[in-house]
């Protein structure tokens, strides 16, 4: 049995912008939402120009792209950012010294600070279940702790429009692998050589 290689497909046609993914992620991973710091975020954008019928509203979910060549990992001086064999890029909070080189290197703006202040507020906000103990430069983990139990990431599990699909690229029968192989889903800024594992199905063809 081959090691899985996890990836996500996001369909911009079916995201309704309910932000349930943001809520589910922040509860699952205890992110400092009071400082507008999210592991995943849904942008509410307008595309097109002209009359109101010609302008479309686009919801654009974003998260760490769990790159195969993650620049955040290569610049990390302590080894706090590391990659599992299954493709998931993780952060060891204890080892992270918070130099923010990863945030500078990330083309996807996926990293954010967790400060001492955030740790204090986290204890107030998340109560006795608060598990963060060290400041770090945090990011999405594809909910690795859930995936290892055979569950889907919290954002995928909660998505009402099935706009987020999570699967194994090494399994040709997996829906995600099939969509990526079809070419309909494309990664963001692939020209940078990061080899991202989050793919987007564009909503433009429907709108033209």
């Amino acid at each position: 049995m081959t090691t899985p290689h996890y990836a996500m497909v996001i369909d911009l046609n079916t995201c309704v912008g309910c932000n349930a993914c943001m809520a589910a992620c922040s509860m699952e991973n205890q992110t400092p939402v009071w400082d507008n710091k999210w592991r995943t975020y849904v942008h509410d954008m307008e595309i097109g120009a002209g009359t109101e019928n010609e302008v479309k509203r686009r919801f654009f979910p974003r998260l760490c792209n769990h790159c195969d060549n993650p620049p955040c990992m290569s610049v990390c001086p302590t080894g706090a950012t590391y990659k599992l064999d299954n493709g998931i890029v993780l952060v060891n909070d204890e080892m992270c010294m918070g130099c923010r080189a990863c945030a500078m290197a990330c083309p996807y703006d996926a990293r954010y600070d967790v400060t001492y202040d955030d740790l204090d507020k986290g204890t107030e906000f998340y109560g006795e279940l608060h598990f963060r103990t060290s400041p770090s430069v945090d990011k999405c983990s594809f909910c690795a702790h859930r995936v290892m139990k055979g569950l889907k990431p919290a954002c995928v599990e909660t998505c009402v429009g099935s706009a987020r699909l999570f699967g194994d690229m090494n399994d040709p029968k997996d829906e995600v692998a099939k969509i990526v192989a079809s070419g309909v889903a494309k990664p963001l800024m692939a020209h940078l050589g990061t080899r991202p594992n989050v793919y987007y199905i564009s909503d433009l063809e429907r709108n033209v």
Binding site: P77, T78, G79, A80, D93, E94, M95, C96, M97, G98, C99, R100, D113, V114, T115, Y116, S134, P135, S136, V137
Partner: peptide, 16 residues
């Protein structure tokens, strides 16, 4: 300007 000052030990160690 580091977020987690004590972890600087990880880069001061020549084994880095």
């Amino acid at each position: 300007h580091l977020l987690h000052h004590i972890a600087v030990i990880n880069v001061l160690n020549p084994m880095v």
